[in-house]
């Protein structure tokens, strides 16, 4: 692609929107990852701990989920044809995802507002909803990585990614709890983190191996010189971060609550590296090996119209999101409305 081509809007705009969509998905996976993860860990916590865990995500979960709406919204805005192709291919897992998100979203509120003796069942539904949402996302990731294939092999692989992504979210949740809690719950969170980490490593390894093997095109993108050398830092950095996380978590919680945010940041970086690798593999396709971002793109004029607004609004959104995280920074305390 020449520089001339890069500079005309019909070429550039789909690229910009693919980038924005990628960033939204990454933000979603990291941010909703930790609160879905906390929902998954619900099953291993006692009742008092559950309240603290909810308090650690209460002010954030709604905004976190909005990144998913933005990601799907951008898919719909920028690549309307691909939106239809991908979502009809993933019809049933999308339903499970939505079912999960609905259950956990309402359970989050209902558990605190129903009569006390019914709280237990909403706690259970919060766990089930979170787990279903995470499993469905992992399943869709697996199917997408294999190029929206059908068949038993694809389903088997997708089940594997489903379990591993769920574990990865649990690890994110545990890392967030290490940052937001103290005492016995924090110690418990460290143990949860280490257990979930093993499955996370397995999952990332499986996806990294399966992606090039499933598609010769992707294989050729990775295993040629000099790309191989240029891309090598991605897996190497991820591996080092895993090792570092494994070591540092063995010594947590540390005196004076040192390092409590570091596991979360390390995991977020690992997610970013893994996501970057996936993005590189699939570029320039939005539907793997079938439809490029330019083939699926909406009219240039429509993209320009929404880009203007995005350029103004997205920095503001980031600004007030950071503000909200600062307002509710520090250790989680019980949530009250007054």
């Amino acid at each position: 692609m020449t520089l001339d081509m890069m500079l005309d809007w019909p070429t550039l705009l789909p690229l910009i929107f693919a980038g924005l969509m990628g960033v939204s998905i990454l933000f979603y996976v990291i941010l909703d990852g930790f609160d879905l993860g906390i929902g998954i860990l619900f099953t291993a916590a006692d009742d008092a701990e559950k309240d603290t865990m909810i308090a650690a995500i209460g002010p954030f979960w709604d905004a976190n989920e909005t990144w998913l709406v933005l990601a799907v919204g951008l898919l719909l805005v920028a690549f309307p044809v691909a939106h239809g192709v991908i979502l009809t291919a993933l019809y049933l897992p999308v339903f499970v995802l939505l079912l999960g998100l609905i259950l956990r979203g309402v359970a989050f509120d209902f558990r605190a507002k129903v009569p006390v003796h019914r709280k237990g069942r909403w706690n259970l539904l919060f766990f089930i909803g979170s787990a279903l949402a995470a499993l469905a996302q992992g399943y869709m990731l697996g199917i997408y990585v294999l190029g929206l294939q059908e068949g038993l092999l694809a389903m088997g692989f997708a089940l594997l990614t489903a379990i591993c992504l769920t574990a990865a979210y649990a690890a994110m949740g545990a890392a967030w709890l290490i940052y937001k809690t103290e005492g016995a719950l924090q110690e418990k969170a460290v143990r949860w983190l280490r257990r979930a980490l093993m499955l996370t490593v397995a999952g990332m390894g499986a996806v990294s191996l399966a992606t090039p093997l499933a598609s010769p095109r992707i294989f050729d993108k990775w295993f040629v010189w000099p790309e191989m050398a240029l891309l090598a830092p991605l897996p190497i950095i991820s591996a080092l971060l895993f090792l570092w996380l494994w070591r540092i978590s063995a010594r947590l919680p540390a005196a004076g609550d040192a390092h409590s945010l570091k596991p979360f940041i390390a995991l977020a970086l690992i997610f970013a590296a893994g996501f970057g690798g996936l993005a590189y593999s699939f570029y320039p396709y939005v539907v793997p090996d079938r439809m490029t971002i330019w083939e699926a793109a909406a009219a240039t004029d429509s993209l320009a119209f929404i880009l203007v607004g995005t350029a103004f609004v997205l920095p503001i959104i980031l600004g007030y999101t950071i503000y909200a995280y600062r307002v509710f920074g520090g250790k989680a305390v019980d949530l009250t409305y007054d």
């Binding site: 709604d62 905004a63 989920e65 909005t66 709406v69 933005l70 919204g73 951008l74 719909l76 805005v77 920028a78 309307p80 044809v81 939106h83 909406a298 009219a299 004029d301 429509s302 119209f305 929404i306 607004g309 995005t310 609004v313 997205l314 959104i317 007030y320 999101t321 909200a324």
Partner: peptide, 22 residues
């Protein structure tokens, strides 16, 4: 999609995040 997309996009950008964060 060229018309529905941007209108829905603006809804997410100017409304959903604002209400969810605050």
């Amino acid at each position: 999609g060229n018309i529905a997309g941007p209108l829905l996009g603006y809804e997410v950008l100017t409304a959903f995040f604002l209400e969810a964060v605050f």
